[in-house]
Design a binder for these strands. Structure first.
Lengths: 216, 216, 216, 216
DNA sequence: CATGAATGAGCTTTCATTCAT
DNA sequence: AATGAATGAAAGCTCATTCAT
């Protein structure tokens, strides 16, 4: 009991981090999150016990709680870590500055396909464990997803105006596109026959075909 | 859970008194599976307790074990129930007999999109709870999925030969197509603005565009 | 977790009592509360574990939670059980109908001294474990105490008006009186030399002396 | 807690490097005890963690154990500190030299009421946390209490012999008197309406009334 | 077949205490 | 002396499963 008869606010470790060097604490924290994520991916969140995480990280069970405040906290941190970049990262890459809509869409898609491909297991986990997140956190995650959809919707709309793209409903097209990004994470078991580059090329082509007339 | 996937024979209750009419038993069993599935969908498998299931079905907690052998068993049965139809059902509908590849693909897609749309919650659950399935069972489920992919691959290949379709890799295209079927279940939270029919039309169009040149 | 991301409301068992005969459940519950109270008295609330209570009651640890909802719940129930009677019980005894203030006060005091004496250990515990009660519950307990003070204040005030009692401040006198009721529970270790009846007589006399002039 | 009151020597730290000046150690120790007592008072002994004490004292958690040997040790030291004065202090004030029993009792009572009033929170804690003390220590504490009772018993007996006091049983009267000293600590929640001086006057009068005939 | 109390392993979390530096 | 990370033994509580009736 932290304080008697109170309610907890998840999101940060409780005890140590105030003193000592916070870098080391953060490092340890992200170490925990990374290893725990692997377990969540492999066994599922509910099936992963704190003892598993202790064993996997080599950090003593009690000591774990010096870096994270609860099991749920680990999941939230995992979501934060892997979900942050997306839109911001695309903007930083200068995608918004590309004048030609075709090139712009192609670049954005390519970049994010690579990214998605590389963190596929994490994405798979997120699809599954979303249910466990506290509502506030869930909202944030969905917001990020919906931001990504908006991002692509804008690109598509601009391409429509320039008569380069042709879709019936840009918002729908953007949703489908973002969804298609997860093809590999969610279907990797059936797509092992392709190399990474083969897959990326095929995916890119298939996705763009639905938007750009006479593509390929 | 003692150890994951220990020696058990899922799919059939263990201590059923062999007497009594097995029809009634089966009826009871599917009643349990149906109600339990709703709970798994709503709260997640791990978060659903046997007590919940007892309350939802109105069957006494102890008595439940006369019809199912374990909680996991219920999940397996749920997968069986909802996963069975797909290919067989399409074949029964006579899709294989349609001569024109374009019409054939369109019909198959349409039928299965409707189906998928209507059991979206169940599909969502399956995406999530796959991890809990015992390996043998998981294999069966993936086999069925892969059969569906093969089904569409054949259609696409035939269309290619007839020069009606154009894709770089029929197997990949089939995978993407089958994956796209799940757009609504997995993204419904962002697609509420469309009516059922609007959605179906948009999805059909978008999917076919990647396969049929000059579609729409 | 009862319901995801919710807050609990202590005060009643969670699972079973809805079905089955509630008499048996209540009986079991009060059995638990009684045994647990003995432990709380002997070792203190914080030092008593649920495993202790399980052992003392002979009820399996998990099974305990079919009758109570938490350890705190047991303490609250203990307070309810032993704190209820006081004022209501005095009223039922017809104390309010006694015309002569002297006799009225004497009777009330006598009755309640007996009662207090007999549940002394419980009272001792309550003095100690009040801190652990949830705020709402604490308020109720203090209200009951303050009601008892009010009860005696009224009697004293009436005696003052009739010139039978003489105190400088009736409210203060009532507070002191109610406090003195706990002499035995809190000091029994130093008062063992007296028999029950000796103690009662001495306490009665000492308390009344401060209120009734020329008493004894 | 492994087993209650195991083999330990409370009152002195265990692993102190015997070197270094012991004055500084003692100072540090009493600083710890004082701060910890405040916490015990506020939150209860069981609910106060060593981390709390570390934070409150500003002494590093591990370092604390250079000055005290256990959490229990702190409680014992607290009892020693706050319980010491009573009788010795009254004697030092020359109360025993007062010839007139009435004046003697009045003076002793007045002095000790003031004292009690001012350390009420500590007394309240002692009433609560007594149960945690190791038996040997508990005996010492009770001995001190009983000494205080004896002190007042002697005064009362002398007054009886001089026909100035009138009680049926001096030992009982002394017990009640000492008990009444704790009225404020234990009932302050219902006595806030009085100023300190009002309370002291009322308490004094009420207590003496039971001993001195025709008082006030 | 039905009941619901009983079982006990296992979960997350806390915390007094120790120890390498 | 001082640090703060590490330790591990409980603690409260849950829940799939069994069993006497």
């Amino acid at each position: 009991m932290n304080d008697q008869h109170s309610i907890k606010a998840p999101g940060a470790a409780q005890t140590l981090p105030e003193t000592g060097n916070p870098e080391a604490v953060n490092k340890r924290q992200s170490q925990i999150v990374k290893k725990a994520s692997r377990l969540f991916i492999k066994k599922g969140y509910a099936q992963t016990t704190m003892r598993d995480i202790s064993k996997a990280t080599g950090i003593n069970l009690g000591n774990l709680y010096n870096y994270i405040s609860s099991k749920e906290d680990i999941l939230c941190l995992a979501f934060e870590t892997y979900h942050d970049p997306a839109v911001a990262w695309l903007e930083r890459k200068g995608v918004l500055d590309i004048e030609d809509p075709k090139e712009q869409l192609q670049t954005a898609l390519h970049q994010i396909l690579i990214m998605t491909h590389d963190v596929m297991n994490d994405i798979l986990m997120m699809y599954r464990e979303t249910r466990v997140l506290p509502p506030k956190f869930l909202k944030i995650v969905l917001k990020k997803e919906s931001d990504l959809v908006d991002f692509f919707e804008k690109i598509i709309t601009r391409g429509m105006e320039k008569k380069v793209f042709r879709v019936r409903d840009p918002f729908f097209a953007a949703n489908m596109l973002v969804f298609q990004l997860s093809l590999y994470p969610l279907r990797s078991w059936n797509l092992k026959r392709y190399t990474r580059d083969e897959f990326l090329a095929l995916a890119e082509e298939t996705i763009l075909k639905a938007i750009i007339p006479d593509y390929a």
